[in-house]
């Protein structure tokens, strides 16, 4: 699982502060799970001083990996967390095998690939990157990130009460583009800026065998903007599918119950789809 706090990691569904890292790791390890700590922020000068201490606390807590995007984290990790694995996650800019290998040669054991890649690209990337790759298989995706406070700025422009500026994830704010009234884009502001999320949820449950065969090493479920019940259900479905595949790929058969149990809890406003998995993009 991926944990962290907003001082270092963006878009965490909740904060697990550095003081609680040790007990979080203990609980997870006891249950046979690994703990990766999210440090995917883009840091400013005055935030750098906190990096060494945090990296040391991750090391001491026994964290299994550190997720980074900013090279400043890599620089600090080499010195302050030399024994902890590094995962490279540059969000939408992690798009090819050469870039993944570049970070691989500088210490990253895993590349988190962009959600905007299609299946062919993922397979080709994996075959050439010679490192673990992680793909998001379920949930909302971040599609726009700004250091501006765009909700606050707009409400100020309207002269609205500051009480409408609800900071934090999942506060019921949505953007609706003028010509696409049926798509609601969740938007929220926190200490790291403004985040706009996709109007639909990725669901690659039916594509799992293809992704396993393409060599994907890790399947990520995004819990942001979802209830605990929903996230549990999603986890169970993917767990069941992967376990069945592992037991005997030849006998693998998709169980529609995995999907319907998710669909039952799926918001009617958010379609479940394959994201960019089967898309061709132009430019």
């Amino acid at each position: 699982m991926l944990i962290g706090e907003s001082r270092f990691g963006m878009r965490q569904p909740g904060d697990i502060l550095s003081g609680d890292l040790k007990s979080a790791v203990l609980i997870a390890h006891r249950l046979g799970a690994k703990v990766y700590v999210n440090m995917n922020k883009l840091f400013r000068n005055d935030e750098l001083a906190a990096l060494p201490e945090y990296l040391i606390s991750i090391t001491e807590a026994g964290g299994d990996a550190i997720v980074f995007g900013d090279p400043a984290v890599l620089m600090n990790a080499r010195r302050h967390a030399p024994g902890v694995k590094l995962f490279w996650n540059a969000e939408m800019t992690g798009t090819n095998s050469s870039a993944a290998s570049y970070w691989g040669r500088r210490g990253a054991a895993r590349a988190v690939v962009a959600r905007e890649l299609n299946e062919e690209e993922i397979g080709d990337l994996k075959s050439k990157a010679e490192m673990e790759i992680q793909v998001q298989v379920h949930g909302a995706t971040n599609i726009y990130y700004s250091h501006r406070n765009l909700v606050q700025s707009y409400l100020e422009h309207l002269g609205k009460e500051a009480s409408l500026v609800r900071r934090g994830v999942d506060r019921g704010l949505f953007l609706v583009e003028a010509e696409r009234p049926d798509e609601r884009f969740p938007v929220y502001e926190d200490d790291n800026g403004t985040h706009v999320m996709s109007p639909d949820d990725i669901c690659l449950l039916e594509a799992l065998p293809e992704l396993v065969q393409a060599g994907v090493d890790s399947f990520y479920i995004e819990p942001l903007l979802k209830s605990e019940e929903y996230n549990e259900t999603v986890l169970k479905s993917y767990r069941a599918a992967l376990d069945l595949w592992k037991r005997d790929p030849g006998a693998y058969k998709f169980d529609n119950l995995w999907l319907t149990s998710i669909q039952r809890l799926q918001s009617s406003e958010r379609e479940l789809g394959f994201g960019f998995l089967y898309k061709e993009q132009v430019y």
């Binding site: 800019t93 599609i143 726009y144 990130y145 700004s146 800026g193 706009v196």
Partner: peptide
């Protein structure tokens, strides 16, 4: 207005 590169609205 986004952090450069961190926007896939067009996509």
């Amino acid at each position: 207005s986004s952090v450069s590169g961190r926007c896939v609205l067009s996509n």
